[in-house]
Design a protein around this nucleic acid. Structure first.
Lengths: 104, 104
DNA sequence: TATCTTCATAAGTCATGGCTTATTATAAGC
DNA sequence: GCTTATAATAAGCCATGACTTATGAAGATA
């Protein structure tokens, strides 16, 4: 599975996106996330594992805790993917408008 | 389920992304997509339904065929979501670098 | 009208994924 | 050293989702 696949798959789950969004805001320990989000601690750990394998978050030990933070370059591939289509989309919009006009 | 949820879920599947990418390039009929992508025609239709409900593609009848094209504004929400984090990501990168420097 | 094409839907199968509880490992604090 | 806190992993459950074949509806073509 490519990283692109993993990234899209990781962001597909709402709970996991919620975790990512919190981590993006500021670094969190697992327990903090488990307190903030209504799923069990193991569920949080499992989601973090998926996010980590998609290179969206990093982790760092801090005593008994493990601090998760955003991988700074994590969303790069998503941005690149999006930009591949952004120009195309504008072009498509243009031709769509033109098509509508021609049809009249 | 919100449109944001639907959009991320729709883009999570590789086959469905492949369909979207082809449709983004140029408009396709269902049969064309079924010829190009190694799944059955019903599978294509099912994927297109998901993409349509996520507002990523539009369809238009053309005789017995049905032509699918990109919804010009379809990726807008994804772009907005991404931009929410892009600044944060750069900031996080900055603080990460600073943290590394301070630690030395 | 009869046939062929195109596409959507129905129904069923199978794998995956998100969740839980139970358990274990490691570090901190008394 | 013992207990408490933190987090990862294991095992199992259940819903969802991606696919298939079968079928039916609607338009094109003869």
């Amino acid at each position: 599975m490519t990283y692109e696949d993993k990234m899209f798959a990781a962001l597909a789950d709402p709970t996991r996106r919620a975790i990512f969004e919190r981590v993006a805001e500021r670094r969190h320990s697992v327990a903090e996330l488990a307190r903030a989000i209504p799923v069990s601690q193991p569920a949080i750990s499992q989601h973090l594992k998926v996010l980590k394998e998609a290179r969206l978050v990093r982790d760092e030990p801090s005593g008994a805790r493990r601090i998760y933070s955003v991988d700074p370059e994590g969303l790069g591939p998503l941005r690149q993917w999006l930009e591949r289509f952004w120009g195309d989309q504008l072009a498509a919009f243009k031709t769509a408008v033109e098509g509508r006009n021609n049809r009249k």
